[in-house]
Nucleic acid binder design. Structure first.
Lengths: 337, 337
DNA sequence: AACGCTAACGTAAGCACTTACGTAACAGCC
DNA sequence: GGCTGTTACGTAAGTGCTTACGTTAGCGTT
């Protein structure tokens, strides 16, 4: 390979292609070792469906920068293997709507640690290159050839699997995470309303300064979830903007965030804690119920949100009963509290 | 494509592949516009044969980081189109020796400006990315999408085609060029001898300090050729280490360098100017002859080089006659003189 | 209501590679 | 000299994309 290096930018095409294929191989090795049965080439399509929800072939193709036949052919393969389903769009019979199967959704929700490990190893490899693209590429190639990239992925993954979920208070530099995590599920399930854009775009003025707070769930230093405690009035708080990174679901981050928010509410000696949600978010509602929230019969008067058709209020007594009944699910070791 | 960007390092594989293919396309467009009929995918193989000379399939495959079937299949195609020939190695009947056809060699010798243009545009695109690989890659993608990369290639190429070859005196920071250019042809035609390694590795102490000099041929700021004027004794100089970048041959750089060296010899009021070379270097010998050098019957006593079987001495009178007879070839506009 | 135009696919074939495999030539060892 | 293992290389088939093309559905115009 030294020969190609000597050719400088002229051999960039060849080298990029080789690095690309090596990266696929490294990712596939990581998937296999972690016991996940999927191909790195599927990532763009599957990930798109995961974060954006059902989508048409053309839409996906445009988003991931490939041609529609590529997506079409991959979709056929994934359909045969049960990863995705396809139904025809009711409003436009030309268009097909691809959707993750429930099983695929479950599988993808567990991939966070592997993805994170790959991301860290890749970033480290690139950083070692110093400044320019060629340097970075050379470092990448060196890491791939020496097996360092694969080893890094393995060790990162091991650390993530052994790590516990922590809850950390608001930091201004994590505001982008707050936005990113929430934008993801809002785009997926609803649409961004103006209230959302305001709060997410500037949490400092819309959450912190009015006396609320934001919590972050972390796993080995990686921010994987968040929620906000908005101050409505003295002693009255709203639990809002709860989001867990897809890929890290099922590890108890949601439960840990909820407990953390309730604990913070308790520390502040709040009187009322409520939340607004939607019937479409089944698993979230279950979580709220098990955490001590009870459904309020009528919708909340003067709600900010179009999508809100669920209004729940926290009842400490119910929470105590629940805690006795249901032990917190823990797929990963979780510190909680 | 914004979606993939948001995925960070996880989508590196996909993006690298896409960038790689776009680079091939950009290079192919540049080739086509410049009137060259070749495919960017051939570059590693053809370039290897150009700078290293005849080579076997396995050797090339190892050098360019691909599998031997890839090289084998490409070789078959190139052979069908007359770019390369294949003969069986005499000492090992398994091995085939691939060699550029004379026509291919001629074609490749003219590709320097296009290659240089591609290299500059690619480097500029990468540099715009700032620090990390991801930034650089993002800049690359942006340049490709906006057509800026292609436009840059075009404008660089236009400038190079319109540029004239200049001769510049020694600069310490160009020492690597002196080494690179000479190593290329030495490896191609002979092997690096210890004298070579010493002189090329540290021209400051082995050429400049003893009272010699090094000239560089440039085209639009790009160093494309070099030669050294070694001081043997007071008034006695040796012309040596003449090298022109493959890809920029046939533009008159060799002639310009030779004239420049003779002019420098004249400025120094030297008495004797000689050179050592090899019968294998036909075109170079022709150049020396037409520049005023005459063959000395006996080999030079006490030559430093194994490969030297030609000994020539400069005769100003012959040079004058030659200048009257032969107008300098100029495939490109050349300042010469 | 018929017309053409465009959009959303699916299918076929091609391309630049890969892995897998077979074959012939060499090289070392008894 | 035969045996075994390795090397060099070609061929076949597979892969992940591409381009080219065809089909059907929607959409705007007359």
């Amino acid at each position: 390979m030294m020969f190609l290096h000597a050719q400088g930018e002229l051999a960039l095409g060849s080298r990029l292609k080789a690095v690309s294929e090596s990266l696929y191989a490294a990712a596939n090795a990581a998937y296999r070792e972690a016991g996940h049965d999927l191909d790195a080439h599927w990532f763009p399509v599957l990930r798109y469906l995961q974060v954006r929800g059902p989508a048409s072939v053309t839409e996906i193709a445009a988003a991931i920068g490939q041609t529609h036949p590529a997506v079409s052919q991959l979709a056929a393969k994934l359909r045969a293997q049960g990863w995705i389903t396809r139904r025809t769009d009711r409003s436009d019979a030309r268009r097909g709507v691809l959707e993750l199967s429930a099983e695929a959704e479950r599988k993808l929700d567990r991939l966070g640690p592997v993805w994170c490990a790959i991301r860290r190893a890749a970033a480290a490899a690139a950083a070692r290159g110093g400044g320019t693209l060629l340097d970075a590429l050379g470092a990448f190639e060196a890491d791939i050839a020496s097996g360092r990239l694969a080893a890094d992925i393995r060790s990162h993954h091991a650390r993530l699997k052994g790590a516990t979920i922590g809850i950390e208070p608001y930091r201004p530099e994590w505001a982008p995470h707050f936005e990113r995590l929430n934008v993801e599920w809002l785009q997926r399930w609803f649409t961004l309303e103006d209230v959302d854009r305001a709060v997410l775009g500037d949490p400092q003025t819309h959450v912190i300064e009015p006396g609320g707070t934001i919590l972050f769930a972390t796993l080995d230093g990686e921010v994987i979830g968040t929620c906000a405690l908005l101050k409505e009035a003295p002693g009255v708080y709203e639990l809002s903007k709860m989001a867990v990174e897809s890929g890290f679901r099922g590890f108890g981050a949601g439960r840990t965030l909820l407990d953390g928010a309730i604990a913070e509410f308790g520390r502040r000696r709040g009187r009322t804690l409520f939340l607004e949600s939607s019937k479409r978010l089944g698993p979230a509602l279950q979580l709220y119920e098990s955490g001590g929230f009870v459904h309020h019969p009528a919708p909340r008067p003067g709600s900010h949100y179009q999508r809100a058709d669920v209004y729940m209020v926290y009842e400490p007594d119910k929470a105590k009963r629940q805690r006795a009944k249901v032990a917190p699910r823990r797929h990963l070791r979780v510190v909680g509290r």
